[in-house]
Design a protein around this nucleic acid. Sequence first.
DNA 1: GTGAAAGCGCTAACAA
DNA 2: TTGTTAGCGCTTTCAC
Lengths: 347, 347
Amino acid sequence: MSETAPRPTLEAVAERAGVSRATVSRVVNGAHGVRDALAERVRRAVEELGYVPNQAARSLVTRRHQAVAVVAAEPETRVFADPYFAQQLRGISKELTAHDNQLVLLLTEGREDHARVGRYLAGGHVDGALVFSLHLHDPLPGLVRSAGVPTVFGGRPDWDDGRDDVTYVDSDNRGGARSAVHHLAGLGRTRIAHITGPLDQTSAADRLEGFRDVRADADPRLIARGDFTSGGGERAMRELLDRCPGLDAVFAANDLTAAGALRVLRERGRRVPDDVAVVGFDDMLPVAEETDPPLTTVRQDIEGMGRLMARLLLRGLDRTTPDDAEAPPPAPPGVILPTTLVHRATA
Amino acid sequence: MSETAPRPTLEAVAERAGVSRATVSRVVNGAHGVRDALAERVRRAVEELGYVPNQAARSLVTRRHQAVAVVAAEPETRVFADPYFAQQLRGISKELTAHDNQLVLLLTEGREDHARVGRYLAGGHVDGALVFSLHLHDPLPGLVRSAGVPTVFGGRPDWDDGRDDVTYVDSDNRGGARSAVHHLAGLGRTRIAHITGPLDQTSAADRLEGFRDVRADADPRLIARGDFTSGGGERAMRELLDRCPGLDAVFAANDLTAAGALRVLRERGRRVPDDVAVVGFDDMLPVAEETDPPLTTVRQDIEGMGRLMARLLLRGLDRTTPDDAEAPPPAPPGVILPTTLVHRATA
DNA sequence: GTGAAAGCGCTAACAA
DNA sequence: TTGTTAGCGCTTTCAC
């Protein structure tokens, strides 16, 4: 761990180039209205000195930080147990760096962390926030809102509190579910069951809605509650088999659930897909490709979601600058990304 | 996306409390040498105004940022395809927030990103860096070094370039591998095979070393090269079975590899663990628990690694302050975290 | 123990 | 087009 050498300042560059600090500043920030010859001299000086602007000094006056916070609640282990979050982060990171913004990661574990995050956000350390809010009654959204920071949500927030000025990005959980069930029906399956996720998560609720869209008249006993884990999938599958031995298809709310269901199906001697066809959701690779047989599932563009979230936020931030009250409406409140069905061997 | 309200400054707090800015500053930063009565007044004013220090202004003078960069190379998909990285991040995040430091995430995809990261690090935006360097000839370490930022590495860096002043944290890949193989041997297995990972990663190389520690005399045909993926595990397992049909145990370099091997073993009619015992590495939950049968594997404390990395870095940063050249040696160069064998059903 | 004042490095009016 | 100047909000000597 070495010492930090004193870094060159604007002043130093100015002196070396034989110009004023203002000129250097202009050149450094997208030169405009600086004679070419001078600009070139400045650029050379910058190069020679290895000058890098001091972001703290810059922020102090511009009130911009070129930084965005990503807030995620960690206890919802789903966020962490699977690569979902990582992929989302990757998308966000790409978009942010493409626009020269830094990514500040804020992970929360509970109440005490909420206070911290609220303080940080309200403290004006970042220009905006990307928030993952996957649960009903999640305190995070309210917190972020009261911090008064421009925000885009990942996943449809659950408030029906009239205010629909929230920007969010979600995948088409409902439509994806519909396509899964349609696919199953198209295979000639008539007794299609559904294993839900934890229904306090909007994604799980939406997938159930999608199932119902297609099977409005479904026997309620064909619906069993899971929890997005494979253990939950096993339990639900047993229930289902006990209640409706004649079922010939299962739409599982996610891939882990499907993996559990698959195990029980085999254990009970049901052949997949011959006796029972199975479709999952997520296309979580390490799981979907590893099941036996490989899982047919609904893929969402997770990285794309992340990228889009960042893009919408950044766009909103830019809009702030012109500050034209007459300007046409801002970012769309919610954006839903399409899903695609990935055919493998279970349906 | 609402507007940012003007936030109260130190000045405002000072005025309200009827003291000078200096006094407020003292109170806000671990008060010392301020009369209780005054301090109390100040604290109340802070509370009432909802004052939060402006970090930019503070950084400008202290040259500290209370921020640490986490640098990870993304193309090495392993980092992103599994929950490994997320868990590590969690550990880092916990430790950093416990010490009031922010986590700035820097993800890289290639050459061009390296330049960006180098610039950022050299730009003095953060107090230190946590770098994941898993590959041989990874340019990142050199980059970070030349940026002159205090750094702790995740995973043993591969340079044998004399300079062993690098601080790093790794799990005991070699010892873990030994314990896996010992376990297999303890089961009475005599023809133990090993499927390696990509040997340009130190973790894979170290696990192979561990295998060799125990089976120095192993028939070279009992070692097949994998790549940390299940597909690679399948290929290697087929090879192994073709070359040495009599093998009775396999130590796979990671869980994904083991999952692939398991599939081939079943395909070829070998019973696990009766005919062939299998041990993996990582204890990557969504995989190790989902295999059929559930995988016996070597667990590493991934979150603990993250936490430790952050702790070592922070400790190093603190040490910088006293700046006592006479002070006893700094952080240990390398710290190796123990692994534990998790018994499930494959061995 | 407390306050006054000098700057940290930069941007943004405003002059020239 | 370029330079001068006044801060941005904070910490930190240095007097008192």
